[in-house]
Design a protein around this nucleic acid. Structure first.
Length: 572
RNA sequence: GAUCUCGUAGCUCAGCCGGUAGAGCAUUACACUUUUAAUGUAAGGGUCCUGGGUUCGAAUCCCAGCGGGAUCACCA
């Protein structure tokens, strides 16, 4: 890696610290009696005695050198607190080296330290730790992007580059505290859901990620290969069929927070791997499931934000139960004025043309209806709304509607114009399930890549008998976006998928090393603009000698100059 | 996958019609024993994403590539 000026300076400081007998990476664990926020929230002048001796540890986020006094902002896992470091306190004797050299010059933003001392309030009224001893715990070699904030929390020169933020999430988390808050909320949200389910007697289970038949959803899977079995295996696109096998096996209510994988496009609402909460409940139907969904989401919103309303951009979305319910045909009629409830495939195709929607021959009735709904209705449902009673063609795993022919007992929950959950009364007639699978095979033959495979083992399970069951899948990432006011799925995933990064010059470094170049000289060669071994070999050893010596001087490096003989050795 | 757009110092960004590369913060040095976006003085720091082309001359114009973002397509 080519080092910047600031990085070289930090490495030199590292050396100086060692020469002063200070280990920049010490081993022992350190006592931590308080977190920053504990002090800020509870300290008062009256309670001074309780804060007379404490210790804390964290990362230096700002250094304000006032001469014989330095103010430090220390960031620990909970927040930021100011430290007051006075020369005569931490260097009571004659030798002031520790303050004058170590604290004043060898500490940098990003270093991790431990301190002990007592709490007081400064003239300007800020609760501050008066430091009596200070220990370096970790010297940071890479400068953090600098973010300055004023008292109201206004940010100056914020790091906004998404590539930096997503690729180096660790740095993003250090400098942008609200990012941390987002992920804490995400976990709180998942905990709230888990608590709700456990309180209702549900059992958390785990089912295979590697599946030989990718089932339970319409999506293109990732394929991998099992060497010992010599068979293809697929990363799961859903866990539905496995959870229903468990209902057959006699569990009443099972759930799983399932990481699923779909080999499709990526955008603001899609990541190749994402999390779905699916659960299945015996002896229930989709009406029961609607009520349960309302309760679950209302409680979750409350636990995360202390209110049933969440803010999403300039919208407010209210998860207060009950949610509106609209059948899919009514929804389409409301938004297009067209009643498609009695139409066949040809009629639907005609409607799509009329609405200028793109269709092709591989699309069956289900996909056509889905296209119409997705294009004309879906974006309009901002408040949580159940869209109910889908046509049978687009729901191969769903029980037929008890009273409406051609429909199934299914709902999707829309919020903020996006689907966030999908549920139905599960199809438990094994003969009909087989027929539905066969229809899917026909779609596949027409060229539909997302049509489902026949899962014979699942059919066998259904033949033993599955109680009437209601099932649902929640898009956890999308709900997390709503709960945290995040416009992009990448903001609620710690490490969103990205194209692998090319680390520049990594190959050259290796080549140079094999050619016998001393490690400390490699940055100099890179600094000269050399980009390949071939380019280096074209250079005259004497010129290289001169250039390297010049660069060494320019960068003020305390390293041994390369000799001409040495350089000739590399170029052979 | 398509279209549009962006890529300049560690960070945020400016750089006009092509003419020696700029600011603030950060860094380095000095001063300052309750500061707070601390301040004052001085200094250093650049593969202008990469590679080609046009030109006497390219950060700037053209082409290709790489990377990001947006929109669309795909995605119940």
């Amino acid at each position: 890696m080519q080092l910047s000026e600031q990085e070289i300076i930090r490495r030199n400081k590292l050396e100086e610290l060692r020469q002063l007998g200070i280990d920049p990476y010490p081993a022992p664990s350190v006592p931590v009696s308080h977190f920053s926020v504990d002090i800020l929230n509870h300290f008062t002048e009256e309670k001074k005695d309780q804060f007379a001796s404490l210790s804390l540890a964290g990362r230096i986020m700002s250094l304000n050198d006032k001469g014989k006094v330095i103010f430090v902002k220390l960031q620990d896992s909970k927040g930021l607190i100011q430290l007051y470091v006075r020369r005569d306190d931490i260097c009571p004797g004659e030798d002031k080296t520790f303050f004058d050299r170590v604290v004043k010059h060898l500490l940098d933003l990003g270093d991790i330290i431990a301190v002990s001392g007592f709490v007081f309030t400064t003239k300007t009224g800020e609760t501050t730790v008066h430091v009596q001893s200070l220990t370096l715990l970790n010297k940071s070699l890479k400068p953090l992007p600098v973010v300055k904030r004023d008292e109201e929390g206004h940010v100056f020169d914020a790091v906004t580059d998404p590539e930096f933020r997503y690729r180096q999430r660790y740095a993003d988390l250090i400098i942008n505290p609200e990012v941390k808050e987002t992920f804490v909320k995400r976990t709180r949200m998942i905990n709230a859901m888990r608590d709700f389910l456990n309180a209702h007697g549900a059992l958390e289970v785990e089912t295979p990620v590697l599946q030989s038949i990718p089932g339970g959803a319409a999506a293109r899977p990732f394929v991998t290969h099992h060497n010992a079995l010599d068979i293809p295996l697929y990363l799961r696109i859903a866990n539905e069929l496995y959870l229903k096998r468990l209902i057959v096996g006699g569990f009443d209510w099972v759930y799983e927070f399932s990481r699923d994988f779909r080999n499709e496009g990526m955008d603001r609402t899609h990541n190749p791997e994402f999390t779905i909460l699916e659960f299945y409940v015996a002896y229930k139907d989709y009406f029961w499931m609607m009520e349960t969904t309302e309760k679950l989401l209302e409680k979750t919103a409350w636990e995360v934000n202390g209110a049933t309303q969440v803010t999403m951009g300039d919208r407010v979305i209210d998860f207060k139960a009950p949610f509106k319910r609209v059948s899919i045909f009514d929804a389409i009629r409301d938004h297009t004025g067209i009643d498609i409830s009695q139409m066949d495939e040809a009629g639907l195709r005609q409607v799509c043309r009329q609405l200028h929607l793109e269709v092709d021959d591989t699309m069956g009735k289900g996909k056509l209806i889905d296209t119409i709904f997705g294009e004309t209705c879906e974006p309009h449902y901002i408040q949580p709304t159940f869209i109910t009673d889908y046509p049978v063609e687009m729901s191969p795993l769903t029980k037929k509607h008890r009273s409406r022919p051609g429909l199934v007992e299914r709902f999707e929950l829309m919020a903020n114009g996006k689907e966030i959950a999908n549920a139905y009364s599960e199809l438990n007639d094994p003969v009909e399930q087989q027929q539905r699978f066969e229809e899917q095979m026909k779609l596949m033959e027409r060229g539909d890549h997302e049509a489902m495979y026949i899962d014979h083992d699942f059919l066998r399970a259904l033949q033993y008998g599955m109680p009437p069951t209601a099932g649902i899948g929640f898009g956890i990432d999308r709900i997390a976006m709503l709960m945290t006011n995040s416009p992009s799925i990448q903001d609620v995933l710690f490490f969103p998928q990205m194209r692998p990064e090319k680390i520049q010059g990594a190959d050259l470094e290796r080549e140079l090393e094999t050619a016998g170049v001393r490690k400390e000289l490699i940055p100099l060669i890179q600094k000269l603009g050399v980009q390949s071994m071939a380019q280096l070999k074209e250079m005259k050893p004497t010129k290289l000698f001169n250039d390297l010596a010049g660069m060494r001087k320019k960068m003020k490096l305390e390293i041994l100059n390369a000799t001409v003989e040495e350089i000739e050795g590399w170029l052979k």
